[in-house]
Simulated assay, not measured.
Amino acid sequence: MPEGFTAILVAVLGLAVLFDYINGFHDTANAIATSVSTRALRPQWAIAMSATANFVGALTGTAVAKTIGSGLITPQSEGGLVVAAALIGAIVWNLLTWRLGIPSSSSHALIGGLLGASAAAIGFGAWQVDGIVGKVLFPLVSSPIAGFAIGFALMVVIFNLFRRAHPKTMNDRFRRLQVLSAAYMAFSHGSNDAQKTMGVMTLALVSAGILPEFKVPLWVIILAASAISLGTAAGGWRIIRTMGTKVVKLDPVHGFAAETTAATIITGASLLGMPVSTTHVISSAILGV
């Protein structure tokens, strides 16, 4: 075992990888459900594409990781146990909602776990209120609203541009375009969600004294990107059915608009270091279109 790596630290890192993997198959539906439901992509091809795009997206930055690892709670000597408790709570919640086929937010489960565990172990003084309000609560409220509004507006623009097109021609065109929008959606998912795992892993490393400051190591980035990609490849058919068929009936044009809207919002949030819920954003975008 490398110097400084205690059993607790190794267990925390293992839990983080497990959470990332589960997050991958739990949230696969967010990226591909609309494409599968509109038959723009076969399920197997959709999952393979999504896994690849998730991996690439996860390599694009660490702003969200910094927010999760250093912008919400203060690293303490108890950090390893705090992170472990947060991860266990998030994992249990994800598995429960996956089993029931309920689309829920892995991001909020993890963030809620971190805040709850740190408050229990250290006290509410461990919370960084400015970071929580600015980087969590604000995007938590605004991103679904933006998803609905932008999705609605984009559909109005598309229908005006193609108002004279035959429905079959329109569906054929957007079925092809939806391959690109699905890849964009998967890329954005990786860019935001994988970074959350990078953040908690780096937080654990800083708390254990392995790292002198919060800077995500390359091996953590690769490990998190690989775990979410492999999890995505495993798929999550229960939630795919809910997102793709039970929320609203979709045509290819609706799927394209919803995915493009959600992916743009999530990518923007990633660049700003804001952890957002892929589930909430794509769900609201679907309702908007």
Rank of each mutant, 00 (worst) to 15 (best):
F256M: 04
V36H: 04
F152D: 05
G89D: 11
I73D: 01
I88C: 15
V216S: 07
F256Y: 14
M1K: 12
A262W: 03
R39G: 00
W98Y: 04
G268R: 07
A51C: 09
R241G: 00
I286Q: 09
T34C: 06
G268Y: 01
D172Y: 11
M49Q: 14
L110E: 05
D251H: 13
R164S: 13
S35Y: 05
P103D: 04
T6V: 01
T197W: 03
G209P: 09
G57I: 02
A258D: 09
G255Y: 05
W219C: 03
W93C: 02
G80Q: 06
A7D: 12
W237H: 11
M185A: 12
F25R: 02
L72M: 04
G151Q: 10
A183V: 13
S207W: 00
E78Q: 14
V200Q: 11
I8C: 01
G116V: 10
D251K: 13
T278G: 04
W127L: 15
V10C: 02
T278V: 10
M155P: 08
L100Q: 05
G112R: 07
P2F: 15
H108I: 03
M185C: 13
D20S: 15
G125S: 13
P43N: 08
Q178M: 14
S37I: 04
S270E: 06
V64C: 11
L211N: 10
S118G: 06
P275D: 11
P139V: 10
A63P: 02
V133F: 15
A234F: 12
A208P: 04
A204H: 07
L96Y: 04
T74F: 02
L9K: 05
P75I: 10
A48P: 02
L15I: 02
V156C: 09
A58R: 08
V92Q: 06
A146L: 14
L218C: 05
A33P: 06
R176I: 10
N160M: 13
D193R: 04
I111N: 07
H26I: 15
S105E: 07
V220Y: 12
A40K: 08
V248F: 01
V136R: 15
N192M: 07
A263E: 10
A117F: 03
A120R: 12
I222V: 15
P144C: 00
A51N: 08
A182I: 03
T264R: 07
G244P: 09
G79K: 09
G268W: 01
A234E: 06
Q128S: 00
H280T: 02
K135Q: 10
I150V: 15
Q195H: 05
